[in-house]
């Protein structure tokens, strides 16, 4: 009798267990002792454009708590590597999706857009020197007295104009009296860290004098000594016939430079400025 009861209980228990197992399969209840996935994966990545190839991107996988990865590079290419890399065949906006999964099959996805675009190499600015030949009415709006763009009363008096048919360009040139009291000054816009060449012609009206053209970094000069000391390039000459002169300089960090012209001892004439990228 005793034996019989025990067996019955055993069988009962067995059935109970079977049912319980099948219930678990159907309802996905956690087993005794099992734990929820407390560290689910979290997908994340960053994208870096290749320095030399605009169409190649590398992707750094920054996901946590994941073991397998699926990359969708947005152009049809895919990968299952940890980190990613892709070359894009065409310009455009692409959505990159990383799916990170852990060993329990829990997944997390993260998407981010990149814009693949060939960077334009902007052409260096060719500086515009206003009233470059000191002619009347040569400003863009057809006005001007040939020296309006060259004034800076903090640094010195405004230049005079020499009118003659024998100046290097047009009918007028800048004139600097022998006392050295007058200067010409103009700020011009250009591209930083670019090599430029400025040319001009000058002459002195006798011996023992000199004429200087200096390039100053930036603008806003109000003190002649400060301005002269700041020169990044300059040429001082004593020629007594019109002489074509070249001044090469690098614009450095600034997007503005100033041209400063001054003379000493003898009357000077200056004419026909040009500016170009070297």
């Amino acid at each position: 009798m005793r034996y019989f009861i025990t067996t019955r209980k055993f069988v009962f228990l067995l059935i109970g267990m079977v049912i319980s197992v099948s219930c678990e399969n159907e309802l996905d209840l956690p087993e005794a002792g099992s734990r929820a996935d407390t560290m689910p994966p979290e997908a994340n990545f960053s994208a870096t454009r290749d320095v030399n190839n605009f169409d190649i991107y590398t992707f750094s996988n920054l996901s946590t708590s994941a073991t397998t990865y699926a990359w969708d590079y947005g152009d049809g290419n895919t990968a299952t590597t940890i980190d990613g890399q892709n070359q894009y065949a065409a310009e455009g906006v692409y959505t990159i999706t990383l799916t990170a999964s852990d060993a329990l099959g829990v997944t997390s996805t993260f998407s981010s857009d990149i814009e693949v675009i060939e960077p334009e190499e902007p052409d260096a600015i060719i500086p515009v020197i206003l009233e470059a030949s000191f002619e009347d009415n040569s400003l863009p709006d057809g006005t001007g007295d040939g020296r309006d763009s060259w004034r800076n009363s903090d640094l010195g008096g405004v230049i005079q104009i020499n009118t003659s048919s024998s100046v290097p360009d047009g009918g007028q040139a800048a004139k600097f009296p022998s006392d050295g009291s007058r200067i010409a000054y103009q700020e011009i816009e250009l591209t930083p860290n670019t090599d430029y060449r400025i040319t001009y012609s000058y002459r002195l009206e006798g011996s023992g004098g000199e004429a200087t053209v200096a390039i100053l970094p930036g603008g806003g000069y109000t003190d002649l000594t400060v301005a002269k000391d700041a020169a990044i390039a300059e040429f001082t000459g004593s020629a007594e016939d019109y002489t074509l002169t070249t001044l090469d300089f690098n614009s450095g960090v600034s997007s503005t430079v100033s041209i400063l012209i001054y003379n000493a001892n003898v009357e000077a004439r200056v004419d026909n400025f040009t500016a170009a990228v070297q």
Binding site: T48, R49, D50, T58, S60, D83, Q85
Partner: peptide, 10 residues
């Protein structure tokens, strides 16, 4: 800094 680390070190 040069954006080359991942490629070079891989």
């Amino acid at each position: 800094r040069f954006g080359a680390a991942q490629q070079v070190l891989t």
